[in-house]
């Protein structure tokens, strides 16, 4: 049901609701919603078969702006609520949207378990490394030293890496993209959608009011080529303005290292070839951080396994086929019964 193409031609506008968007001017979310609408139009899912579930935060206003079914829930609980939606009707195309505070702090537990179960949800984490809607406090992904109203002398706790966390939770699909990459984002979302099971996508998103430019070290135009590694399955890991750099695996230190092609006899044959199904490689790529390494973008890991919703329904189907005539009156009369014939004097 969820992949049927609607008779009418779908365009990004088909997914635009009548509600006026209330994000700050210049917010990265504008670019993201545009890409999401484009991805859905390209996928061709009937908007009536799509459900967006969100928690609380700037990102979580997302469902109101989509002409699909939508549920704006409570802080952190979107993965749990989406799990119920999907289990109740696995035919629906269910998307979860939340920010870093929502999905990695107050709702970290639900994110972990939705991923662990591998339920067929498309989970989009808009990571801006800050609490926006509550006016700028540091978040669980904020870098050490982040100055904010709650950390005037700079934060002292270490951030969580969203994608390494997801892999630790047992993710079968992780990917990363950047709000402003208008072609890359829809491509990644289409891959996430195609993956049956929990798909976890980190979308780097700039908060123009409380954390503007925090990702400039790898998203700014002048550094992008040198600090972004765009992954393609089966292709060597190359980056740089002229693709002159690459990643090589050093078996002694068991680490990746940045090398330059043509220097010290390095050739393309020395580089690591991207293999989406390699979890060890995926973990190393997910953990790479600028400036020492480029940020890995695209599908980092994809290794499909049976989805939770599928397994749950298969058990129910098996129980039903074993007892096709399951009858409620028989259920109530299971075990020992006895009859009282008549009222006794």
């Amino acid at each position: 049901m969820n992949d049927t193409v609607s008779p009418r031609a779908l365009t990004p506008d088909s997914f635009e609701s009548d509600q006026e968007i209330r994000w700050c001017p210049g917010c990265g979310d504008y670019a993201i919603i545009k890409s999401v609408r484009k991805a859905l139009a390209d996928i061709g899912t009937d908007p009536d078969q799509v459900v967006f579930v969100s928690g609380i935060g700037c990102a979580s206003r997302f469902p109101y702006y989509m002409a699909t079914y939508g549920f704006h829930t409570i802080h952190g609980r979107a993965p749990a609520i989406a799990t119920g939606v999907k289990l109740a009707n696995p035919a629906l195309d269910v998307w979860v949207v939340g920010g870093d505070g929502d999905m990695l702090s107050i709702g970290g537990n639900h994110t972990l378990h939705a991923i662990r179960r591998n339920i067929d949800l498309n989970i989009l984490l808009f990571n801006n490394e800050i609490y926006g809607l509550t006016k700028g406090q540091y978040s669980p992904t904020s870098r050490v030293g982040t100055r904010s109203p709650s950390t005037p002398m700079g934060s002292v706790d270490y951030p969580v890496s969203a994608l390494v966390f997801a892999l630790g939770a047992g993710a079968h699909f992780i990917a990363r993209t950047i709000d402003t990459l208008q072609k890359h984002v829809p491509d990644v979302l289409k891959r996430a959608h195609a993956h049956k099971g929990a798909s976890f996508v980190e979308i780097i998103q700039n908060c123009i009011v409380y954390n503007d430019g925090v990702f400039d070290d790898f998203t700014a135009k002048d550094v992008a080529a040198d600090r972004q590694l765009h992954l393609e399955h089966g292709k060597p890991l190359r980056f740089g303005k002229t693709k002159e750099k690459g990643l090589r695996f050093d078996p002694k230190s068991m680490k990746l290292e940045v090398v330059t092609l043509g220097e010290n006899g390095v050739s393309e044959a020395d580089l690591v070839v991207h293999d989406e199904t390699n979890r060890t490689l995926g973990t190393m790529l997910a953990a790479m951080e600028p400036p020492d390494f480029p940020a890995a973008l695209g599908v980092i890991y994809c290794s499909p396994a049976e989805s939770y919703d599928h397994a749950v329904k298969a058990q129910i189907a098996a129980a039903r086929s074993k007892a096709p005539a399951a009858d409620l009156n028989a259920l109530l009369r299971r075990g020992h019964t006895w009859t009282v014939d008549r009222p006794q004097a």
Binding site: V51, V53, F71, T73, R77, A80, I81, A82, T83, G84, V85, K86, L87, A88, N89, L92, N109, H110, L112, H113, V312, K313, I316
Partner: peptide
């Protein structure tokens, strides 16, 4: 369909999600 959730909040959350789904 029974679902052993990760915590009490997820348990009611999933039930609410299921209700939303009909």
């Amino acid at each position: 369909t029974t679902f052993q959730a990760e915590d009490e909040i997820a348990a009611i959350g999933a039930a609410i999600g299921a209700a939303y789904a009909g």
